[in-house]
Amino acid sequence: MAVETHTLSSCARAATAEEARYRIDRPIAPSRAGRVVALDAGAAEVLRRTAQQEWAHARFYVCGPAGSGTEDVVLHTIDGGPATLADELASASVVVMVATSDAGAGCAYTLGKACWERGIQTAGLVLGDGTQAGTAASSAVAALRPHARVLLPSADEVDVVDLLSALRV
């Protein structure tokens, strides 16, 4: 009499904890060259603290308008050094914009447009409760909405760190 054998399917075999031990275990390189941009003074304060932490490829900036009547923006590194938007975006794969008010609406527009043209992924964090109409944060949300592929309208400082950590920037 033949002995019936039970052969596991490839899915059942592959999904066991035992098999998981054999997955390729190679160190993962940071996958994102992140540019983290404060759109107003409140956000700049947050990013100064965030930048103190250890990051692989993240660079931190403050963005401001170049002057009235122009869409151009001026970029500074978080410690005040000069930076050029086109140069910084040339090597970027994600741009994270941080806002606390709508003061940076013009910067959000220019940055968002520049990222769109270059195929760079964007994310926006608004610190405060941007879901409540009439607040400074809600104005910031409105300013960022067209330009951020992902928007966290009620974020706090920890969200900035957690998002950047999760993205391995």
């Binding site: 993962i28 996958s31 994600v94 994270v96 992924q121 964007t122 994310a123 592929r149 992902v150 966290l152 969200d159 957690d162 998002l163 999760a166 993205l167 391995r168």
Partner: peptide, 13 residues
């Protein structure tokens, strides 16, 4: 070992 993207923000949060 994940490589999350901004679209995963719901999961991150």
């Amino acid at each position: 070992k994940e490589r999350l993207v901004p679209a995963d923000s719901g999961i991150i949060k």
